[in-house]
């Protein structure tokens, strides 16, 4: 009997959620209230605020003179647990910093978003501060970002 009573109570809880949410959401839907009641974030139109320290896509920074901050030291590639950073270094003939990356690829399809690369970088050349979570592609290869894509904010 106790069980039966508990079962009824359970029904009560779900019914309460249902009715309260229905009421709040209906008011919201017709524009009478700003409280949605439900927790759903309707993603493409609504977005949750990203936190300042969230780690999303990488960005390569530039120096004041326009040169990439990166000196192709491979620290990030060394630290990367997913081994998804590919760098090819070259001589930078005109700059006092002798070395620069000719190619800098990050395979975001493999990246674990751990942020070790950011921690490892001695030049503050790489950050994960592009607050854009969308990374869907139809081809895996499109997820391999090169310098051009990585420097875009």
């Amino acid at each position: 009997m106790k069980l039966f009573w508990e079962a009824i109570k359970g029904l009560g809880i779900t019914a309460r959620h249902l009715i309260v949410n229905l009421w709040k959401f209906s008011l919201y839907y017709v524009g009478l209230s700003r409280d949605k009641g439900v927790v759903t974030v309707e993603y493409p139109e609504e977005r949750r605020e990203t936190f300042p320290r969230v780690r999303l896509r990488h960005r390569l920074l530039r120096r004041e003179d326009g040169r990439l901050r990166c000196v192709a030291c491979f620290m990030c590639a060394t630290a990367c647990p997913a081994e998804c950073i590919y760098i090819e270094a070259e001589e930078d003939p005109d700059h006092p910093l002798e070395k620069r990356p000719r190619q800098f690829l990050i395979d975001l399809g493999k990246c674990a978003y751990c942020g070790f690369c950011v921690e490892a970088c001695p030049e503050d050349a790489i950050r994960m501060d592009v607050h854009i979570p969308e990374l869907a592609e139809y081809e895996r290869d499109n997820l391999i970002y090169d310098i051009e894509k990585l420097t875009k904010k």
Binding site: H17, N21, L22, V38, V39, T40
Partner: peptide, 23 residues
């Protein structure tokens, strides 16, 4: 819809006919 509201969600509301969603 009912399960959604019970679970504090909205439920499917994207189907659209001539721009009308009607939740």
């Amino acid at each position: 819809k009912e399960s959604a509201l019970i679970q504090d969600r909205i439920g499917a509301n994207r189907a659209e006919v001539l721009g009308l969603r009607l939740n």
